[in-house]
């Protein structure tokens, strides 16, 4: 049934991603690939993996952006992105076969690989690029929020989080119930001004992003200048020019 659940799920499992902390190491994407290539949507097929033009199925990707702010306040922001498990998931409602569905019990959006016809329409409908087409298997695949890990009673309790969360060395990824306003993740979102990506698309994503913290705009307590002023090219005299020449060799 590709209509969305009639009642919004009370439990909305999702991720909170802290853009202030992410260092862009891609470990979450690698561990995602490692877990999921043996999990619910296995395999995460690679094409030409050792050749000149390798590509393949990934559920998690890290973009790095350069953001030019005011007064030379430029910064690099690493931006991990996976399925946001939207409340109004357009990838679910466009599906002609019912293969794409949103779970009533926890809001996770999944694909039934046995009924997917591989028409790719869900990937057109998703503004976030969360859908992947596996050309070997002819079906669509996507982030499962590690549904086969988070409920897995064979694992230690602390391991029952998505692979991307358990592997993040910087603690930039948080997992929890965003449907409960008193959960740790909801409190974190409230405290840090967590936001939705592309709210104008109307998908109401569950995953939230925490903005980079504002940087100190003043020179700081050390008295150091905000930016270094360029040295005059010819100002050093013959000795320093000779030093420069020697060191530039």
């Amino acid at each position: 049934m590709t209509s969305l659940p009639e009642r919004q799920p009370e439990t909305k499992l999702g991720l909170v991603i802290d853009l202030d902390i992410c260092v862009g190491c891609h470990a979450c994407a690698v561990n995602c690939k490692e877990w999921n290539t043996g999990g619910h949507s296995a395999p995460l097929t690679d094409y030409d993996p050792y050749g000149a033009d390798p590509s393949g199925v990934w559920f998690n990707r890290i973009h790095s952006f350069e953001v030019a702010g005011e007064n030379g306040d430029n910064r690099t922001v690493h931006f991990p992105k996976s399925c946001l498990h939207c409340d109004d998931a357009p990838c679910v409602t466009v599906c002609p076969t019912g293969a794409s569905y949103k779970r009533e019990e926890d809001g996770i959006v999944l694909v039934n690989a046995d009924t997917c016809i591989g028409c790719k329409l869900c990937s057109w409908a998703c503004p976030y690029g969360a859908r992947e087409y596996d050309q070997d298997e002819g079906v669509m695949k996507k982030c499962t929020l590690c549904v086969d890990k988070i409920y897995n009673e064979n694992l230690d309790v602390e391991s029952r989080v998505p692979a991307c969360v358990s592997t993040c060395p910087a603690g930039a990824r948080h997992f929890g119930n965003l449907g409960d306003p008193s959960s740790d993740v909801s409190l974190l979102v409230a405290a840090r001004g967590g936001y939705d990506l592309m709210p104008e698309q109307g998908c109401k994503p569950t995953n939230k992003y925490l903005p980079p913290r504002p940087r100190k705009t003043g020179p700081g307590a050390t008295g150091a200048p905000h930016a270094l002023t360029p040295q005059v090219a010819d100002g050093g005299g013959a000795f320093l020019r000779w030093i420069d020449k020697v060191l530039s060799r």
Binding site: S55, W58, E66, G69, D73, S123
Partner: peptide, 23 residues
């Protein structure tokens, strides 16, 4: 800006992959 929620002039520094992906 709406896609990333970041404020300022945004440009892509590094793509997620070395090669073109499905998207």
């Amino acid at each position: 800006e709406t896609a990333t929620g970041l404020k300022g002039k945004i440009s892509l520094l590094e793509s997620p992959h070395t090669q073109e992906n499905y998207l």
